[in-house]
């Protein structure tokens, strides 16, 4: 079930009435021990759109992103409060299986983290194989598709069974993107996916986002504001763990409402 998101009262955004909310966070706060990493973030993530999260280093983008698919469950020091509604269901509600949530919401991490003991091919199909899909033709097909999408196929097609650690850093990152895509998530969280990539691979990944939008909802953290401008439909600006401003990318970049957003954007755009 999709839910309508009520535009924030203060904004005069002209929202397309066909917009559907895929995820909605309500007062999400993440506390590491005593220190808050993310404070009271309420925002929508629209279906089949790319939402960019921007903000200075350490402002809580990664922390927020990880709260969406319950990755904080495994950090004993981190505590998450508030609600993350995925299609109207709070993923933190009792009885919700985090594995189910992560199956729907995939993630690409800030640092490449391929499985060191698996081959390139093994990495891509790990998510499929380890839930019991064995049929070789299915796996081969999925691997090729995912590697093509991640713009890695041409570079590795002749050495699919080489160890994943033999790839360069940028290639590893694209491998991780392919791995996340192979399980066909409905929502994809990407934490600075192109920060280690050259311009050409970056271009391919950006093309991929535009293409994937048709059936996947994407949240991307980026330090590169041109990139946010190019690929995203909506942007949220984070500062010190709070979300200062959220709106359609075109508006946020041209007529920011908040002084702090403006300072950040102009500071970077020069």
């Amino acid at each position: 079930m999709m839910r309508e998101f009520k535009p924030m009262a203060s904004s005069e955004m002209t929202l397309d009435p066909s917009l559907k909310t895929r995820i909605e966070t309500r007062h999400v706060t993440v506390i590491y021990g005593q220190k808050a990493g993310v404070k009271d973030v309420t925002m929508p993530i629209y279906a089949n759109k790319v939402t960019a999260l921007i903000g200075p280093s350490g402002c809580g983008k990664t922390t927020f992103l990880r709260s969406l698919n319950r990755m904080h469950d495994l950090t004993p020091s981190a505590r998450v409060t508030g609600e993350v509604l995925l299609d109207g269901i709070n993923v933190y509600a009792a009885g919700v299986d985090p594995v189910e949530v992560r199956r729907k919401i995939g993630m690409v991490f800030q640092k490449p983290n391929p499985f060191p003991t698996l081959s390139i091919y093994g990495n891509v199909v790990a998510g499929l194989r380890l839930v019991g899909i064995r049929k070789k033709s299915l796996l081969d097909e999925a691997a090729e598709r995912a590697l093509r999408q991640a713009a890695l196929w041409d570079e590795v097609k002749d050495r699919l069974h080489a160890p994943s650690m033999s790839l360069s850093g940028g290639q590893q990152q694209r491998l991780c993107i392919a791995r996340a895509l192979a399980v066909e998530p409905e929502v994809l969280l990407m934490d600075e996916p192109t920060s280690a990539l050259d311009p050409i691979s970056t271009q391919s990944i950006e093309d991929l986002l535009t293409e994937l939008k048709n059936h996947v909802t994407i949240v991307i953290v980026t330090h590169n504001m041109q990139q946010a401008g190019r690929v995203s439909d909506f942007t949220g600006y984070f500062l010190n763990g709070e979300m200062v401003e959220f709106g359609p990318t075109s508006l946020l970049f041209t007529t920011p409402k908040d002084k702090r957003t403006e300072a950040y954007i102009t500071g970077r755009f020069g």
Binding site: V99, V131, G132, I133, R145, R148, Q149, V183, E184, E211
Partner: peptide
């Protein structure tokens, strides 16, 4: 680049109960 097919459904072959 090859066109990504719309949600082919590997994953929809739901894993057995032991996984879920």
């Amino acid at each position: 680049m090859q066109q990504a097919p719309v949600q082919s459904s590997l994953i929809k072959q739901t894993p057995s109960a032991i996984y879920r």
